[in-house]
């Protein structure tokens, strides 16, 4: 499995997914707006989907399972994004800002 052409090796896909996850976590820490953090969260979703697909392709007998799973991840991510964006728009109407630092009413 760990030989042959580059596109037919499991570890290449695993490294790509790890890169996506690392970039997503870096963005989640460093971003200062809600929308930027949500975009980083989408990158983490993408990393999870790629991982599931890679393991499905190389280590699972039934090839349909992982694809169905990734389809469910896509659907849930779409639902999550729609809810989160509507919350962000509502927050922006109340606070006139989506910076995470200014969304605090109780801080002294």
């Amino acid at each position: 499995m760990n030989s042959g052409p580059l596109y037919d090796r499991l570890d290449v896909y695993l490294v790509a997914a790890a890169f996506l996850l690392a970039v997503g976590i870096y963005g989640l820490i460093r971003r200062r707006t809600l929308i930027g953090m949500l975009i980083s969260g989408e990158l983490i979703f993408a990393a999870a989907s790629l991982n599931v697909m890679a393991f499905n392709r190389f280590t699972v007998h039934d090839q349909a399972v992982g694809q169905v799973f990734v389809l469910f991840i896509l659907g849930l991510a779409a639902a999550e994004v729609s809810i989160a964006l509507s919350i962000i728009v509502a927050v922006y109407r109340n606070y006139r800002s989506v910076k995470t630092k200014e969304l605090s009413e109780l801080s002294g």
Partner: peptide, 24 residues
């Protein structure tokens, strides 16, 4: 995270299935 996951993914001998008969 990147270093750890890369090491884990490259070092682990992932088992290959006996057959890949089911088409996707």
């Amino acid at each position: 995270i990147f270093w750890g996951l890369t090491r884990l993914g490259a070092r682990t001998p992932w088992p290959a299935p006996e057959t890949l008969s089911q088409s996707g």
